[in-house]
Design a protein around this nucleic acid. Sequence first.
DNA 1: TCGAAAACGATCAAAATCAATCGAAAACGA
DNA 2: TCGTTTTCGATTGATTTTGATCGTTTTCGA
Lengths: 258, 258
Amino acid sequence: MIREACPVLAPQRRERIRTLVREGVARVEDLRKTLKVSVATIRRDLEVLEEQGKVRRVHGGAVSTESRLEESVFDDKTTQSSKEKLRIAEEAYRMIEREESIFIDGGSTTLFLARMLCDRNDLTVVTNSLRAALELAEKGPRVILTGGELRRISQTMVGPLTSAVLGQVRVDKAFMGTMGFCLTNGLTTTDPNEAYVKNLVAEHANQVILLADSSKAEKVCFARVSDWDKVDCLVSDDKLPPSFAKSLRKLGPKVRMT
Amino acid sequence: MIREACPVLAPQRRERIRTLVREGVARVEDLRKTLKVSVATIRRDLEVLEEQGKVRRVHGGAVSTESRLEESVFDDKTTQSSKEKLRIAEEAYRMIEREESIFIDGGSTTLFLARMLCDRNDLTVVTNSLRAALELAEKGPRVILTGGELRRISQTMVGPLTSAVLGQVRVDKAFMGTMGFCLTNGLTTTDPNEAYVKNLVAEHANQVILLADSSKAEKVCFARVSDWDKVDCLVSDDKLPPSFAKSLRKLGPKVRMT
DNA sequence: TCGAAAACGATCAAAATCAATCGAAAACGA
DNA sequence: TCGTTTTCGATTGATTTTGATCGTTTTCGA
């Protein structure tokens, strides 16, 4: 036995395990060598961390809990043209002022925005995106979830129940995503339930800011969301055709291309 | 004994401890060496500082309340008696029938229950727990989130907005957690907002089933949730005193001990 | 399908840490 | 200066954490 003096505190060690696991997978044996403690201790730590939902144990080690979701269809979207999406999100971030209340929609571009907010304690964030809520679950602004039925594909809350909460709040700015947008049909998406929620959000926002990369331009999907008169600003990337931007500006919205 | 002349004043020393802890973590032994006082003094200082909410003590030292470490330590208490909690959850699972709609409350015991449901496509699950929703985010039953303000500590949605959704649904069985329960005061928890939600859920459930291990027995917390007449069944572990179970049955609820 | 190797969980003992107590020294007020 | 209060250090017994061992389970290749 002969236990060594504890070199690091247990919570510190667990936090290290957590970050190591986040990198991908972490085998028990590797963790033992890195942290210089017995496998029993590693196992106990993993047990605690799993209990807290921080990691998921597997035979031989542990994997990140977040990885499960990121494997799904969802993550395909986050990798595609993620450069543009990140730049769009950064531009959107600059539009947020102090002490504002904002809405964050589901989708990958808006998720980038949500990630940037975890150091802002002055904001109030309303969202129907489970993923966005997760990003802000540990720290950051005040978070209000809309509630409603969980739509698995997009990990958002949709349906009539959503309106129950949305009817009782107003936000300064709503940052919305969309599956497609074009001059004639306005904003469209795949699911009517989601379209309904987006529309509802627009009604309860002082400003509607659409975050959509240029790949969405001239795309029309099944469910209609709204016309351009509801949209105050479109933030997109520089691959958006200038002619499109010019025509759009005539319809009302400002257009920012980063 | 033979006490040295006090090198620095107590408040000054505590402030130093505080800044040292703010760096991340500080071990008692290290503090003793740097401040040149006995461990007893260090402990006393840490005790005071924790009372003031300046630091959070852990075995071997203290961590900053601002760091990410803090939060991982926070629910250490929930990891206790996880065996019992798992057994309780299994017992609860057996109470669920086909095609039912159920509510799942926040808390670790109910989280175990949520994990067991990911193969059930026949159910409808209403929950105010972000963690429970996550467990069922990929596959499993239909999930409906209550919405509301996110309470970070418990990762649940609480507050008046919650009632907007809850008012529109009914569930067959509500599986509730609690921080404490006793014969005279009924169910209690720490946060009044959460107590309010629990109470509201009970109103919209045909059956209320309380999942609580025996460590919660005879504990009374700040916020009152409800009396026993709202509770149809208590599922606990076998360490619950038989006399307690007997007295409780007289008040109405069935009692199951696994 | 079987068997070996790896990994796991449970248990126990050692070491470190902790909480409680007591007595002494310093600080304080008169 | 005297008596009181506060602060501090040492001791002791309890608690927590950790590591080692052993029997069991899981995994993987033959």
